[in-house]
Every structure is written in structure tokens, then in C-alpha cells.
Design a protein around this nucleic acid. Sequence first.
DNA 1: TCCCAGGGGCCAA
DNA 2: TTGGCCCATGGG
Length: 322
Amino acid sequence: MTEETIIIEIPKKSLPYNFDYLLTHYVFYPWVVENKQLVRLFKLDSDKFVLIRVGFTEKPKDNLRVSVISVLRLTQGERLWLVNLIKWMFATDEEVEEFYEVICQKDLVLKAASEDIYGAHMRADPTVFESIIGVIVAQNVFFQRIYEMTELLCKRFGESQTIKGRIYYTFPTPQRLAEAPLSDIRTCKVGYRDKYIKGVAEKIVKEDLDLEKLKDSDDTEKIRETLISLPGVGPYTADLTIAISLKKPVFHLDLFSREAICTFYFKNKKVEDKELRKFVERKWGKWQRYVMLMLTTNTDTWAKKLNTKFRLKSAAKSLPVQ
DNA sequence: TCCCAGGGGCCAA
DNA sequence: TTGGCCCATGGG
């Protein structure tokens, strides 16, 4: 068992950086929060298990402080791979200053929405597959339930390691979910989504798809088509996956985001999807996915500042973990 | 009990 | 192409 600490500097141009936001919002399994650190287990291609604990230090400047525990010593290449993955997941190179200091300041709604999570960077999943499963699980349920579903999936189909007396899980691989009986997946309380989860996994395995390659493409229309060809993936799942996993400038329309846009920008009037898309793309361009993050995070809370009632309850805040 | 939820597949017009 | 229904599960 080896342990080392890696410091990842957050470039000045990427500030402000709100780490507290990451500790308290959208913390889905296999991520867990321990002692103000985001903790999770990975299995590398070389089959080595690695536990990372990502924390934050402000002095002498804003850094991610990552503690890496591995059963077998990592090679230089593996360490580099891990650092790049963490930078990607924690969006340390995303230059959000213009968004928070300019875009949000000149818009009353975004100003209210951004106050409590000012400087938030959008955390990305390590793989596109994980994002797809995460979004499928979010279809047609109160968002609060996806915390439980992802936890059950990881505990049932992920691999585990016990480190310092605690047990940690990896996110399930496509292989593992592809070979699982539907009834086993169903035990994770995912309901009718069992066949979507297995279906996506099966297609990836059978057709030897490499969804990570999509990160290199800028043809979002093509990417969208590719994703929608997967079972259980429609426009919502594809768009949200592209936004959170591929970091392309798109946004997702769902019951929640439609209602948010119509409430705050169209005086509660119902508006066609086509028009909503045009409106968002034109108004916010490359920042549209950050705008959607603001509009859909803790909406019912900040709406009060605008003397507006918002019907739906946002479940962006994860339940407090010990 | 019924209704609804941060959709997608399917099938009839 | 569009509109309705169904699909599990859990909370109000």
C-alpha cells in the first residue's frame, strides 16, 4: 500500500473556484464525501486499484490537494493519467471568470441564481458511459432518487476494496452490466430503466464502441445522433451527457429546465422547444451549459429572492454525509 | 387511492 | 411527423 500527495494548481485564469459547491452538490456514488474531501475508487487499465481523496487548499494559492492511495505503486504514466483525469473531472482549466463576473452580473435571474454557488465549476464524470447511466437513471423520477439508484448500482456491480477499514466501490463497467441478468439490475430499484442500462452496456461491448472518442469531436449533431442510437437515450439524455461529460456548448431540455426558462424568461408562458433552443443558444452561446446549471440548481431557493414561486424542488444538494 | 416525477419506445393515425 | 399510452418506483 503506497500513499502520496499530489498538488494540482488551479490556474489564475480559472478562478474563482468554489470547492465547497463540489462537496455539497450532485455528489453521486461512487463519490463520497469524507472530511471535506471528495473520495472515490478507480481501477486502472493495469488492474491496479487507486483511491483518490480530492481536497482543497487556499494557501499559498488555490490548489487541489489530492491524496492517492494505491495497493501497488503507480508508474509515472499512470500518475500522469490520473492527474489529467482529475483536472478534467474538476474542471480546473475552465475559465469561468467571464461567466460569473460579467454574464451573471448583468442578468437579474442569473445573479440571484449564482450568489450561493458563486464560482462553481461543473464537475465531469470520468467516462461518458458513467454519464449516460447517470442520466438514464434520472429520467422521469424526482432527482433525489438518483442518489440511491447510483449507490445501489455501484454496490451491486462495481468492484470494491477495503482501505483503512472502509469499503469503497468503483463505478460498474459496461462488461459487468452487459452480462448481468435484468432481474439483478432491477434489484437496484431502477424500475423499467433496467433494460436501458443493460442495453447501453451490451451495445458498447458487442460493437466495441469507444465513447471516449466523442470527446475529440466538435460535431455535436453527429455526437447527438451517436448517443441517441443507444437504447434508452433520447434528446434529454444525449444533450445532458454532451454538456456534462463532453463539455460541449449545449443544454438539455427537460421538465425542470423548460419550466425554469419559461418561468424566469417568458413570464410563465409555455413556449415551444424550438423557440426555447433558439433563445438559449442566441442569448448565452458558449455559456449555455453553465446557465442551465444555474437555472436548475437550488431553483426553488433562489426564486424567493426574485419574489417568484417555483413549483419544482431542486435536488441538486446532496444529502449531508457524516 | 391517486397523481406525478429533471423521458423514451412504440404504435396508430 | 405527431400524440397518446405504457413503462417501475417512491413520495406527497
